[in-house]
Design a binder for these strands. Structure first.
Lengths: 341, 341
DNA sequence: TTGTAAGCGTTATCAA
DNA sequence: TTGATAACGCTTACAA
């Protein structure tokens, strides 16, 4: 059975209070006493009952990290970094998936609040704002990561420079000679989707090229199959020679379908991703991609959250942090074959 | 600020007890009263304080899922399935990484016990048994997943048929005509590593072929780089024409290095994985692999854990469940080129 | 330096 | 059908 402070008190003859203080290394207990108590506690395999402590102290030393899909390496890498940061300071982040569903997000937020977490890192689905309202009402510090809301919602956030990332990626495709460039979009509620699309439009417009509606390919972020949408896009726009994908997972989906229908990458189709997950996974085809410093974003968000939790961040102004992006060119982008039909 | 039962009591004029019962839909409160209380609770955004309840009831409705590395799709897929199963019944699994480190595993277990979780799903690092001892002492139900201990440690577990999986994979490589087959190992403490190796040995022995020590390639599961080890293996055994990798991630690492040193896959080198992550990720090169029904393992483990938690599983006998494996052949395996040097 | 007592927000017990 | 009261295991005054 679980050992309680009471058991240690009985075993040592000290009061529960003394045990509690000794195990938390407070200065008001004699060193000898502390040593003795710690020894007995260890022998009895004492493990502090955190919920019991937290209802009084209000501190649980746990955090929740609410992300759309841990199956996406983009979020996996961020979570690992967050975990590393907080476990070093004795706090435990735990993770929940929203699967890009509003209801799952609200549940995750409610559960986090209900668990008395010390802080929340959230990548919102952006199809509702109830979760933000609940967090604000709870007074639990929270940071948005990867996505941001427009006015009037004002929160701390850490994102990457989506607009600029998409702009330089599109610019690069243009500089290779591509003119019919597909842009993959996923969900117009999501800020990164809108901003990447804006970057794409900017680059085209700077090159004097108009945005064609049917070069916009709408795919889904979640587990549903994108194959049919991709294939019918290929069929409808055979003249398209390059794709800017919303993320690397979708880029690889496109590469797979392209190969399946007999198009070579990059000879027949250049594909540009967004995320640079190749830097962390041994993928057999190196994907040209926009690198978004996932670890930086995660670390900055962790630091900011921690400073909010400890109250060190006195600045009541919400922090809006935009991490720069850069281009990584690998094997999936090349000039278009000039004499294609 | 957070709403408490007390606040609802004040707002409605009922006692805290009545509020508590009403919100948990106990039968001893009048329907009208329940309706009214629920309405007020909703208006006040009441979110139950789970830790407070759990110190009395002992039930937290949270579980912990302790896995080596969420970055590995093998575990990601399992976690998603576990999450799906439990969120449907109103329980919340949260996830922690061990990074294959004993100390992280023990900490995760201690934290889980300290958080009063209702159950634990653990894929152990197997470099220590302290975590098992702590779990047993805590009396919290737990299930091992993917790995098992030898006697005298006896726990519930759900694994795949590692021996048979590796045997049929090796058999297939043999049937293609390969004779110099590399087996990738990771850590002899890990049961799946030992059992897959046994399967490999069995298949070779049935074919009358001896196991050669220097066809065993030792790689690492965690983030460290395997490149040098792979390249020096290629250099030392250029006659090796096929590889059975411990898992798909390592298989892809090998493919990447093979391509990098100018060997074609599968023409110059057949590569067989273990996990079949291609079924869930749009990877550009289809990997031949042993399919291990990750979702089945996760679901079976979840069901068993839940039955242990509710006490429905009366059988005090520990359950040892072995899920069958099967072969998925894709693009990375082929007969050896006969006239290679 | 240590102990006593109150209280955190719930749930459980028992009385009304 | 509802309410008072005691617990749960801990932390935090405050007292000794």
């Amino acid at each position: 059975m679980k050992t309680r402070l009471k058991d240690i008190a009985q075993a040592t003859g000290f009061s529960i209070n003394t045990i509690s203080h000794a195990l938390r290394d407070e200065p008001d207990i004699a060193e000898d006493t502390k040593h003795y108590i710690r020894e007995v506690a260890k022998k009895l395999d004492y493990i502090p009952n955190i919920p019991a402590g937290s209802i009084k102290s209000g501190k649980s030393r746990i955090l929740s990290v609410i992300l759309p899909d841990i199956g996406n390496p983009h979020f996996t890498i961020m979570f690992r970094e967050i975990e590393r940061y907080f476990s070093d300071i004795g706090m435990t982040p735990f993770f929940m998936n929203t699967r890009e569903r509003a209801i799952d997000e609200i549940n995750a937020v409610r559960l986090s609040i209900g668990q008395n977490v010390d802080g929340v890192i959230l990548c919102p689905t952006q199809t509702e704002t109830e979760s933000i309202r609940l967090l604000e009402k709870s007074t639990i510090p929270f940071i948005l990561i990867g996505r941001r809301f427009d006015e009037p919602i004002n929160t701390d956030y850490v994102i990457c420079d989506d607009t600029e990332g998409a702009r330089i990626a599109t610019e690069h495709l243009l500089s290779l000679g591509h003119r019919k460039i597909c842009c993959v979009r996923v969900n117009e509620h999501i800020s990164s989707d809108r901003e990447r699309f804006n970057g794409y439009c900017q680059a085209l417009s700077e090159a004097g090229i108009g945005v064609e509606d049917d070069l916009i390919l709408h795919l889904t972020l979640t587990e549903e199959e994108n194959r049919d949408a991709i294939r019918s896009f290929f069929a409808s726009r055979p003249d398209c020679s390059a794709v800017l994908a919303f993320n690397d997972i979708l880029a690889y989906s496109i590469i797979r379908e392209a190969i399946a229908v007999g198009r070579r990458v990059p000879e027949d189709l250049s594909v540009m991703g967004f995320d640079n997950i190749c830097s962390d996974y041994p993928l057999p085809i190196g994907l040209s991609s926009v690198s978004v410093s996932k670890k930086n974003i995660a670390r900055i968000a962790s630091e900011l959250l921690y400073s909010r939790i400890t109250g060190k961040e006195q600045n009541p102004e919400k922090q809006h942090i935009i991490v720069p992006t850069r281009l990584f060119l690998r094997e999936t982008t090349a000039p278009p074959v000039a004499d294609r039909q």
